[in-house]
């Protein structure tokens, strides 16, 4: 009986979360198209989501590319397929690793900040104050954050693609003694433009998911400082899980 109750309660909470997510999505979409358009705030958020995340994304993808080259080289050497290292690095980065890892890093960095910021504004009545001053909080707070994330994540992924491939090149050429010309040739041999675009589409969707989830968590925060902490943690956990979850279905859909 206790178990059934627990399952039921968890299910209800999940449905409630889903309901809030889609309600916020609809609300944000409807406020996105109505004036006033706060371009300055959008740019501010684009800097926070995009520009400020460059170092993190740079390091993450650089090391991912490097380790990818190292691993595949050691593995592929066993059946004399070292020439494929460049292709493997390029394909796995553009299609999968750059979008997913970038999204996860940005969720941790930016999603947590969004949830904490909105959560604090909620518990200190600042969101109520916005409403009371005739400003729709979804339009003022959620729309610029989500729009900035949808726009900036693809750009970060393009950067990540380049940096990751350069990391692979560094390891293969400098460390493992591969021929630079053939490595570059191999890298682009099997790479198609659709590999890159699918990664970029994924990134945009991940940006939408993590930012909207973080905003929902923050927006509906209850219970003071502890509530803000809980909202922040859950924004990162559910954001990361949702990115991985969505990744599977998007991959299935896009190829």
């Amino acid at each position: 009986m206790k178990l059934l109750e627990l399952i039921g309660r968890a299910l209800l909470r999940l449905l409630e979360e889903l309901g809030r997510f889609f309600q916020m999505l609809g609300s944000a979409a409807s406020w996105l198209i109505r004036p006033p358009y706060d371009v300055a705030e959008l740019f501010r958020q684009m800097v926070r989501v995009g520009v400020d995340s460059i170092p993190v994304v740079f390091l993450t993808t650089l090391f991912t590319g490097m380790v990818l080259a190292l691993q595949t080289f050691n593995g592929f050497k066993r059946f004399h397929a070292e020439s494929l290292v460049g292709s493997v690095v390029a394909l796995s980065l553009t299609r999968e690793l750059a979008p997913v890892l970038t999204a996860l890093m940005v969720t941790g960095r930016v999603g947590s900040a969004m949830a904490a910021e909105l959560g604090t504004m909620r518990v200190t009545e600042q969101i109520d104050a916005l409403t009371a001053l005739g400003t729709e909080p979804v339009q003022y707070l959620v729309v610029p954050r989500v729009t900035a994330s949808v726009l900036m994540l693809p750009l970060l992924v393009i950067l990540g693609d380049f940096v990751g491939m350069y990391g692979g090149y560094l390891v293969a050429v400098q460390l493992l003694g591969a021929n630079p010309i053939t490595y570059i040739e191999n890298s682009f041999q099997y790479l198609e433009i659709s590999d890159v675009t699918s990664g970029i589409i994924k990134a945009a969707v991940f940006g939408l998911i993590f930012s909207l989830l973080a905003c929902v968590r923050g927006y509906y925060t209850e219970g003071g400082a502890e509530g803000v902490g809980r909202a922040t943690t859950r924004a990162v956990v559910s954001g990361s899980l949702s990115v991985l979850f969505a990744d599977f279905f998007l991959t299935k859909l896009l190829f």
Partner: peptide, 14 residues
């Protein structure tokens, strides 16, 4: 709501 002005208990300043 723009017709209203409201002051909150703790100020609720941004």
């Amino acid at each position: 709501r723009k017709k209203f002005g409201m002051s909150f208990q703790e100020g609720a300043l941004f």
